Simulated assay, not measured.
Amino acid sequence: MASKRPLRALISTATCPLRPAQRPQPSLVRTSACAFSTTTPSRSPEYESEASERPRWQQTPARMVAPFRTRPLPKGPVFRVNEDPRRLDDAYIRMLGPGGDKVLSDEVKWLAVTHKSFDHGRRGFNDRLAFLGRRIVSLQTSHALLNSPQVEAWPKDDAGRPLPDEFGRRPFLHAALGGLPGLTQEAEDRVLDKSRLAPIAERYGLDKVTRWKPKQADNLLGSGLEAVSSTSLYAIIGAVALERGGEVANKITQDKILAPLGFTFPE
């Protein structure tokens, strides 16, 4: 009887090329392409609810609040910050004039009067706006000192020429250089001292609307009220420069800050 092995080997050899090929494994390119699908990804409920919350300046972001308090409540009276938009608008109208509540957007208006000590800075604070505003006020103060009359002027004769000194020398005098002796760092520091800027900020009501956390609620002056209100004054100037331009910020600096300090500017 003939063996069936050669026949089986022949059938196995003939059917081998007809076997279905194995499915290739998904490549990295295919996997990467799926990540850039145009299908709208589903969002979890916590992200959907975050979009409907109030603005950041009005409420602390929910995801930045700890689940429980780690420190005990401070002893003594609690300092309440202003939360009334009308009171804030009144302060801007006092400082910027009629329509001053419309000069800045709502978010920037609150940001300019928010100190970094308020709510641990979670709602934003005015440090960067104050940095820009301080540079603008410093520049305008330098211009004002250059144009201010000097107390000690070089003596002149009847013809307006400078008199010689004890060595017979005549100094060179020019109208553009008349205020140069008064342009010193000490003079600018005296003009922009916080003890002089704080009453101006108080005149506009910025001390009542600035949001901050004093160390002692019953001793605001000792907790740094002058520095905080002066920072809000600078921050408003910086915010006006960003949203309304440098020319408007310079004019407000001259009329609302330097003019109350005794400087005069040409129309």
Rank of each mutant, 00 (worst) to 15 (best):
S52Q: 11
D89P: 01
L261H: 11
T70I: 04
K75D: 05
A144S: 00
T40A: 13
P17C: 15
G99M: 07
V113I: 15
V113S: 06
R56I: 15
R86C: 10
S117Y: 03
E46K: 15
V65W: 00
L28R: 05
C34L: 14
D218R: 08
S232C: 02
S49G: 07
R170W: 07
T31V: 09
M95D: 00
V240M: 03
G238R: 00
P171M: 05
D218P: 02
A235L: 09
S42Y: 15
G205C: 03
L73H: 05
G168Y: 09
S3G: 00
Q25N: 10
R56Y: 07
D218E: 14
P162L: 06
A227G: 04
V248I: 06
R190M: 13
K75F: 08
R54I: 13
G245S: 04
Q254F: 07
S148G: 01
V209Q: 06
R203G: 14
L220H: 03
V228K: 02
P266I: 04
L242G: 02
S117E: 06
G99C: 11
G76N: 07
A239W: 08
P149V: 03
Q254D: 12
R123F: 08
K109T: 04
R8K: 14
R196T: 04
P199H: 13
Q216W: 13
A130F: 04
G224P: 01
L18T: 08
R8E: 15
R94E: 11
P41S: 09
R80A: 10
R54C: 12
L220W: 05
T114A: 00
E267N: 10
G124S: 03
T13D: 12
Q59K: 12
Q254A: 12
F36G: 03
R71V: 08
A187H: 03
F263M: 00
K256S: 10
G121I: 07
Q25Y: 06
P74C: 14
A187R: 00
H143N: 08
F125D: 01
M95Y: 13
R170Y: 11
P72D: 10
L104D: 01
G262A: 09
E50S: 11
Y92V: 01
P72N: 08
G224F: 05
A14Q: 04
G222A: 07
T114K: 00
I93C: 15
M64I: 14
W212G: 00
E107N: 11
C16W: 13
